[in-house]
Design a protein around this nucleic acid. Structure first.
Lengths: 333, 333
DNA sequence: CAGATATCTGCAATCGGTTTCAGACTGAGG
DNA sequence: CCTCAGTCTGAAACCGATTGCAGATATCTG
């Protein structure tokens, strides 16, 4: 059916070995033979059979990507970055959505391990011990999480939180609320830590308003706490929550940013499309994706070479319309 | 390194063939042998090598998915549906994002064809002739497009447009604007057609406001035309555009839905999160994804069996806050 | 009880590449 | 002219599974 290496060999009047060499190590075959083989291969539309190559070389040319929920607007950008970078390196990407099921992750890694050369775990929910096990089954790179000795790519949360707090402090805010994500989440912990450090450094008060689901609804639920907490500014764990919060505040007649300022994190696409447009900390999502692929491919190219363990990408604060001068503290309007 | 079928065979005291049969056609091996083999396989953690299986059977166990832009919030839902349904059928999915590059699609199909058992083309931008060629390289199912004799899954646009127009007419709107997407797009044509038919049937006037990019910005650009067109309601080609339109109208001091009603299409996640929440025609995105996989797997299971050529999924109108009674026509407030 | 049939299993070929090894040929140097 | 190194090529083994074929055993039939 399909044209094989032997077909090319026959037409070019050489052996299969020569064709193989012409394609994979052209420098060791005679120039005129090479040219002829390549022309024939091209003319016949020859495409190496990946399965056959994989069988002998042990390389599949595939990468696996496991993530909790594609519907969460944070992830598609990461996938795009991964996808395009992988493709540039002649790798294909298996995308697997676990529907936020941490236990599914473990099974997926196991079943994927043999079919790919490496796995990218994006915001994995699994336990550290499970991560360690996973990393033994195949080369693994983590995105949005750090763990033990597994290479990882994440945003520089400490720096990002500082940007946020400095911005708010600069607007006169003294009491800043934080609407946290799920307690177990790595990002949540990172961000709490970063905010605490930043608050101390900038000398403002941080009011932790509790943990909520990292969704629009979760953010809406946090509105009550914001009012009770008597803060003049709120940082939400992500943009989705910030948007939920915005909606709930509006329902309660609280004006943003006049009565309270709101800052999101992620810079998802729609954060710029809502009204008022959301001030948010932009995470370089595509870049994180690309970088994770780089790390993986680098490791595959030379498994003995050392891989940078943790890569932290700088964030950027996008000041839009949901942050403004603090009202309460001292500046009477 | 990895445990092979021969390892299992040796430990179980049988031949490799028997192990193979135990795994793929259990009914033809002796019950006690079967049990022993399966136990050993499980105990050793045996996983068949997909490359080896693929080499001999010609089946890869992979599906390819080509789509224009993952960052467009319409697609992740479709991917989720495809992903989960494929996984249920023990298939993996290669996801490829073309970045809206129609010419890239052709190349991708070609390079993917040998590595997958079938390809799902989601909203492909390529020309009909190219589609025909693609379908010759591998089994293909189209999502969101119809073309010649290639099986396809799409929303029932005619029905959907009728729902929209009836809803608006019911609110007293007589002049309804349509902000169309790209002229070449299949959906655009379908929707124009559907709207025209619906307008005629319900006896309202349809004002076509021109073609715009299917983005937030594209929608914003359409605002001017909406005002000039003197319509009391607008249908946008998709939610992203509707949201852009909403923003631009607000900037011009036009209140929605008081001054003008707006209807989107797609029901992307954020359409419910903006204020006012967008009235939109919901497309069953996940379901479309699942269905496309069903069609493909069905064809793979029995290539001779006929496949339903076009599947149209019913849509649903979600009436939220951007549509209200018409102001102009006769009802003075 | 012989012979036919059914059931189960193993051998060996096969898929399409890659890679080791050895041989053919070339040209240089003595 | 012979030897030797260097360059290029082909034969054959191999990766890990599946499957047609044939042989072995058990079961059934008359």
């Amino acid at each position: 059916m399909a044209v094989t290496i032997r077909d090319v060999a026959r037409v070019a009047g050489v052996s299969a070995s020569t064709v193989s060499r012409a394609l994979s190590s052209p420098e060791i075959v005679d120039a005129v033979t090479l040219e002829r083989v390549l022309r024939v291969a091209d003319h016949l539309g020859y495409r190496p059979n990946r399965a056959a190559q994989g069988l002998i070389t042990g390389r599949t040319g595939n990468l696996g990507l496991i993530l909790p929920d594609l519907a969460n607007p944070f992830f598609p950008s990461v996938v795009k970055g991964i996808q395009s970078q992988a493709h540039a390196g002649d790798y294909q990407v298996f995308v697997m959505d676990t529907d936020e099921d941490a236990s599914a992750e473990v099974g997926l890694v196991r079943s994927l391990a043999k079919q790919v050369d490496g796995i990218i775990l994006c915001s994995p929910r699994m336990k550290p011990a499970e991560l360690r096990d996973a990393a033994r089954l195949a080369p693994v790179v983590l995105v949005n999480r750090r763990a033990g000795s597994i290479p990882s790519v994440s945003a520089d949360n400490a720096q990002g939180m500082l940007l946020i707090v400095e911005h708010l402090a600069g607007l006169g805010h003294q009491r800043i609320g934080f609407v946290a994500g799920p307690r177990q989440s790595w990002s949540t912990k990172e961000r709490v830590r970063g905010l605490r450090a930043a608050a101390e450094r900038v000398d403002v008060q941080l009011v932790e308003l509790g943990n909520f689901a990292p969704t629009f609804e979760g953010g809406a639920e946090a509105a009550e706490g914001v009012l009770i907490g008597a803060v003049t500014a709120v940082v939400a764990h992500n943009d989705l929550m910030a948007m939920g919060l915005l909606g709930a505040l509006r329902e309660r007649g609280i004006a943003v940013p006049r009565d309270v300022s709101v800052v999101g994190i992620d810079n998802i696409q729609t954060s710029a499309m809502v009204h008022p447009a959301l001030t948010t900390l932009a995470i370089p999502k595509e870049q994180a994706g690309r970088r994770s692929v780089d790390l993986l491919l680098q490791h595959l190219a030379d498994p003995s070479a050392p891989i940078p363990l943790t890569t932290e990408l700088p964030t950027e604060l996008l000041v839009r319309q949901t942050t403004g001068p603090a009202t309460h503290p001292k500046e009477p309007r």
